[in-house]
Design a protein around this nucleic acid. Structure first.
Lengths: 127, 127, 127, 127
DNA sequence: GTGGTCTAGACCACG
DNA sequence: GTGGTCTAGACCACG
């Protein structure tokens, strides 16, 4: 999978990496049960600090995406995390802001749905 | 309008305030042409520093939401900002990550659309 | 002469007014020896505070552009101010910054001269 | 590079600093890709507050001159900003006023061009 | 009365 | 070690 970090972004590298792995899983590029590259390898490939990859892996473990084994490294969980109440709450908060901003800028419900639908089908394409 | 800041949150106070004002505009609680509270008043009401409110107002000015007049204070612009290409790009990036995470957690297209629709109609209720 | 104030601008109103009067003189719309509108009239026409017009007139008097007579009001001096050393110094400072910024943004000497020439001939047109 | 602030000036310190950095770039004293001093170092050298330097750096980032990296500090962008329409508009406004004032004071087109040419060639001397 | 600027000092996140 | 955020407090310009 291709990981692309924007070094000039305001979003911290560990957060960018986390998002890309989550999007990689949604696209089926990383499948449940599959091993992720080792911390050493991934940090070397991307050209970032070893601790940064480690931080990302640990956050993804906390969120229920990965298991980390001292010998076998990181692996995508067989069962992906489900949508707990707390998660739904955060999702709605984020969406409320995004939708408010979009609505203010003249994007109506149909335009917004169309954008979401395009993204969803992009993820469903290649499983 | 009721502003509610989570002081424990990782999201900076000025950013939380910005989002709440944008949501307030979407809900019609702040209307185009309407004056916002002065930085001193709002900072006093919320219990945060004057400079933090000032920062939020200036960011919203940069984004095209407000005009700031040295003697009359801040006012919602008569014409809200429109959806420039750069904005659409950022919106799609944010949505891609949110949708990927949601999809992984078993939220399908229909569930997601339903959530968005609920939020949209919440904003459309005229106040 | 048409005075146009941008009330949303960061430039103070008295400064905008000063610049417009100086440009009006350069265009020949106000001629040496000519009376300017009274403070009361001008402030009423533009819709700004009486003190603001007063401030502008006093600055222009300081700079050698106007004479102010209690009974006859403000008048453009018969002899416009000349380019003293101090003025030349300030002009060069301003131009140095403008040219540096323009050069950095890819505007070369010819483009810049062309812009200046256009402006000069605009002022020379209608005397 | 030598930074010189006039503490008595009406021009805010952060604005003076911004102009000097832009002139430094035009002169080639700061080259694309080059790192600027840290906010702490520069503020200490000049004898101003750290936040004032920070404000300047952030404005220059907004204008497309710098990138700011939380750990590496500020760097002149590899690609300097280009002359967008909005910029050209502001430049013409500024020049119109400067030229009007100069013309009124007896500086003709040739004198003015000569001054601009001198400044341009000053910037073109490679350092 | 309003925002703008500047200072001083603190703690934090990133890597 | 770097910038980011936040607070507290001061003085000033505008009108």
């Amino acid at each position: 999978m291709l990981i692309k970090i924007e070094f000039e972004s305001d979003i911290p590298i560990y957060e960018q990496l986390k998002r890309q792995i989550i999007m990689g899983i949604a696209k089926g590029e990383f499948k449940p049960g599959e091993e992720l590259p080792s911390v050493r390898q991934l940090s070397g490939d991307i050209g970032i600090n070893l601790h940064t990859v480690n931080k990302t892996y640990n956050i993804l473990k906390e969120e229920g995406y990965l298991t980390i084994n001292r010998r076998k490294g990181a692996m995508v969980k067989d069962e992906l995390p489900d949508a707990k109440e707390e998660y739904i709450h955060i999702l709605k908060d984020e969406l409320s802001y995004l939708i408010a901003d979009a609505k203010n800028r003249g994007i109506n419900m149909e335009d917004f749905s169309k954008i979401c639908l395009d993204i969803y089908s992009e993820f469903e394409k290649e499983v």
